[in-house]
Nucleic acid binder design. Structure first.
Length: 441
RNA sequence: GCCCCCAUCGUCUAUCGGUUAGGACACGGGCUUUUCAUGCCUGUAAGAGGAGUUCGACUCUCCUUGGGGGUGCCA
């Protein structure tokens, strides 16, 4: 029976999860699910200052939000401390490490690297990697304050967890040569490595908070769907081949392989993410969108209940036009509140045109006199008005839209008026006409 | 400084010696259309530079340039 493949995601909880970091988690997850192996979680909580219960919870929430379900129990690195130190002692006894007092900071434990020969391994994404032993240096494994250093803890925990494949960021490439020596010294099998290219910004520099949203929580707040973020991140450095882009996790897991992973850095393009998010929102089940819709409106303080009995109809109009949830309050304010803002450009183009106030009055009069108030009747009404004026619908539609919503885009005009209802429509048309005459808009 | 890695449209990428170098985002045009969004059609746009290997290189090798990563008590 073939040995089970085991991978792990080993973040240090800091309160926020960087997209570069979670991308590594995603690749680990995809690979594990692809091969039917185990995806383990290890919390490297050795920084007591930052690894608070809240920070750990934030990490777990993030994993859950993205659907990164892990197998087995979480291993907390601090729980292994005694073991780490025991092994350091063993290395000392065997002469593979030595004590040294550097700069009077006290004695630390340093691991010996070979002085000649070459250390090499085959990286699953970067290919054959090699380093001359003379270009390596001994390194600290236990600090002078007695705490184990990352290199030691990381390698030992990987042995403890039986990790067979280490998938992580490119910034760990140099560490790999050190870690391999540690595995050898401990007589443990050397895992396979896959180093993922870094995610960079528009300038090709490492992507950071200065480049906009850099943490998973921020994307969540901005109204990105976990599936969209997952899909987008998976495609940064990996392509399934063919022209497939929008895929389910299952499809991605099925198609995943390291042969199609790129070795060069990938830029983070928010526009493409936004497009993809819009695709996901458009395909979202109504109930899920509705829940997000309500939450966003509530957070914006908009009185979204009751919806004039036309909730489903409004959602029909809004969902396909939503790129991120954050757009919702702004896109819908006209429906819920009378203090909807007027877009300057739209006002200048459509309402400051000659005869705009007259058009609004005529429309209001016609709507008030009409026996019906439906999408079809409104369209017929405006069409008839346009024909009577000999100008077609265009010159009528635009001013009316801007008058009742303050915006140049949104639902179809007749749907918009219908959703608003006759009373609100008339009130707004006349109020705007009056402001135009007063010159206060 | 030294070590390692990387290099196709503006961006994400396909291509695994022979293609009119394909797709997606973004951008431009058109159709549908009352706006926006969608949908459909469509346009602009790429192998950093130089040697070499080969009948033939985006693809293999080397150099240059550019970029990224690392460099004994961060992870």
């Amino acid at each position: 029976m073939a040995e089970q493949i085991r991978v792990r995601f080993a973040p240090s909880p800091t309160g926020k999860v960087h997209i570069g970091n979670i991308r590594a988690a995603i690749f680990n997850w995809l690979f594990a699910r692809h091969v039917g192996g185990a995806f383990l979680l290890r919390v490297e909580d050795t920084d007591l200052e930052r690894s608070t219960p809240e920070a750990i919870q934030a990490l777990l929430d993030c994993m859950k939000w993205l659907g990164l379900d892990w197998d087995g129990e979480i291993l907390y690195q601090t729980s292994q401390r005694a073991h780490h130190l025991e092994v350091a002692e063993e290395l000392l006894r065997r002469g593979l490490a030595y004590r040294e007092n550097k700069g009077g900071q006290g004695e630390c434990v340093i691991f010996r690297m070979p002085k000649e020969g070459v250390i090499a391994y085959d990286d699953l994404v970067k290919g054959r990697m090699r380093k001359q032993a003379k270009d390596t240096q001994d390194f600290v494994i236990v600090r002078s304050d007695g705490s184990p250093v990352f290199h030691l803890a990381n390698v030992l925990d990987d042995i403890t967890q039986g990790v067979t494949h280490i998938i992580r960021g490119d910034d760990h490439v140099e560490n790999t040569f050190k870690h391999i020596q540690l595995f050898k010294a401990l007589g443990a099998p050397i895992p396979r490595y896959a180093h993922l290219p870094m995610i960079v910004n528009n300038q090709g520099k490492p992507y950071s908070k200065r480049d906009g949203a850099a943490f998973v929580g921020e994307f969540r707040e901005q109204g990105f769907l976990p599936d969209a973020l997952f899909n987008f991140l998976a495609l940064l450095g990996w392509a399934p081949g063919g022209d497939r882009e929008i895929m389910t996790r299952q499809e991605m897991a099925q198609a995943f392989d390291f042969a199609h992973c790129k070795a060069s850095p990938a830029r983070f393009d928010v526009k493409k993410l936004t497009w993809m998010n819009g695709e996901y929102i458009a395909r979202q089940p109504r109930a899920a969108f509705e829940a997000a819709f309500d939450a966003r409106l509530a957070a914006a303080g908009l009185p979204h209940e009751p919806l004039n009995g036309l909730r489903a109809e409004l959602l029909d109009q809004i969902q396909p036009r939503t790129k991120t949830y954050a757009d919702i309050p702004g896109n819908c304010r006209w429906f819920f509140a009378e203090d909807y803002p007027f877009d300057e450009k739209a006002v200048a183009k459509r309402l400051h045109a000659d005869g705009a106030a007259a058009v609004l009055d005529e429309a209001a009069a016609a709507i008030e006199a009409a026996p019906d108030f439906t999408v079809a009747s409104l369209e017929a009404l405006v069409r008839a008005l346009g024909e009577a004026k000999g100008c077609g619908m265009g010159p009528l539609v635009h001013p009316i839209r801007v008058a009742v919503s303050g915006r140049a885009e949104g639902p179809g005009l007749f749907e918009m008026l219908w959703l608003l209802g006759r009373e609100r429509t008339l009130r707004r048309l006349r109020a705007v006409a009056a402001r135009l005459r007063e010159g206060t808009l």
